[in-house]
Computed example of a mutant assay.
Amino acid sequence: MYLHDTVLRIIFLSQTGVGVLGNSIFLWFYIFTLFSSHRWMPMDSILTQLTLSNTIVLLSQGCPLLISYFRTGYFLGITACKILFYLQRVSRGLSICTTCLLSTFQAVTISPNNSRLAKLKFRILKFTHPSCLLCCVINMILEIHVPIYISGSRSRNSTHTRGINLLYCYWEKEFMEIVILPSLRDILCVGCMVCNSCYMVFLLHRHHQRVKYIHSITLSSKTCPEIEATQTILLLVGNFVSAYCISCGFILYKVCVIHSGSWVINVTTFIALCFPTISPFLLMHRGIKIPRLCCAAWWKPNVCS
């Protein structure tokens, strides 16, 4: 059992540490580049909010689970558990909404001039900051009742058998009251991300078909910023949707099977933290000058046409 705990400590310490470091580096470089260029573009607010929400997800989910393997029993008080779990839920919802917002804005951005979405290209620039703020407010309101069903160390002697042991806190299982609205939000956002991704894949495929008939070496050998930004966002969305669906499967298993063991919490947390850990490195892999890459897509009328 000691070896099992040691392995879990190493896994979550590495995942949380690498994720927080990656998001911190990306955020620092992103803000430094923006201030040095003195230009704050519409997509910058979305990427900044996504990075911050991912950092909070890593700290609020990874750190408590990591500490639980260094200390036995419930080490958090009732108030700390309520605050911590509220932060987990809000940051998770904010990450979902922000990723959906990012894919939506990029889909509108690369839409052709003859499409119906073309009329929204310049109008949508005005709604980036309000949209980010609205995402924060909506998620804070949706999760406002979550602390009611969370308890701390006193739950060790709790007589409730329908609760969920989170290893460091305890979730009373008035399940339907706490997940209906957030689940509708998740379904809506994930569905929107899938639709946006399909649309962007269609546009990229059509662009690829056009490029095949262009015999100019210069045009065919160089990938334009719009294509690179779209490919990056598609990878982000694909990574998020995959991790989200797998994580939901384990959560449902934990809810339905009372004696499922702590391994479900460990696997669910690990999968849920994959997206916030990978996303900053995925963005940095596409080029150090990420702000210019993303901003370029906002000022081109077509997808490299």
Rank of each mutant, 00 (worst) to 15 (best):
S103P: 01
R286Q: 10
I124C: 02
H38G: 08
T268D: 09
F85T: 07
F202Y: 14
T277H: 01
T79R: 06
D44S: 14
L66A: 07
L188D: 01
L167W: 01
G238I: 11
N302A: 13
I150T: 01
S153G: 13
T72A: 12
M176T: 12
L234I: 12
V90R: 05
T218I: 10
P276M: 13
I214W: 03
M176A: 13
L203E: 09
H259F: 10
I251T: 09
T33F: 12
I141K: 00
K173P: 00
S115F: 08
K212P: 00
V255E: 12
W171R: 05
N23C: 12
F70S: 13
P301F: 01
I144Q: 09
C248H: 03
L219P: 00
A107R: 07
F202E: 06
F122M: 08
T99H: 02
G163L: 08
I25D: 01
P276I: 14
A118G: 05
I233F: 06
L102A: 15
Q209C: 11
S158R: 02
L21G: 07
N113R: 10
L236N: 10
P276A: 14
K126C: 02
I96S: 08
C256Y: 10
G77L: 06
K212M: 14
I233T: 11
T128V: 12
S151T: 15
Y30S: 03
L58C: 09
H4V: 14
I278S: 10
R292P: 00
L8Q: 04
L252E: 07
C169T: 04
L142R: 02
S183D: 11
N113F: 00
S220W: 02
S91F: 06
E172F: 08
G191E: 05
V18H: 00
I110P: 06
N54C: 15
I56V: 15
N239S: 14
W298N: 13
R210K: 12
L188I: 11
T128F: 09
H129Y: 10
R39I: 09
Y213A: 12
H215M: 11
R210D: 13
S262Y: 10
R9E: 14
T6V: 14
H38T: 10
I278P: 01
W40M: 12
Q61P: 00
L84H: 00
H38Y: 10
N23F: 02
I180M: 11
E172A: 05
M200D: 06
T98C: 09
K222T: 14
S158E: 09
L188A: 13
I187T: 08
Q209E: 14
Q209F: 05
P276T: 13
F85C: 05
L50A: 14
G163K: 04
K289H: 10
R89V: 05
N239Y: 03
W171K: 04
I10A: 15
C294I: 13
Q88T: 11
T232H: 01
S279E: 14
G249L: 07
R210T: 10
F281I: 05
P182M: 08
I124T: 05
Y30A: 02
G17R: 07
H160E: 13
V108W: 05
V303Y: 07
Q209R: 12
F270G: 05
Y149E: 09
I178Q: 13
F250D: 08
F75L: 06
V241N: 06
N113C: 06
C294W: 07
Q15P: 03
L273P: 01
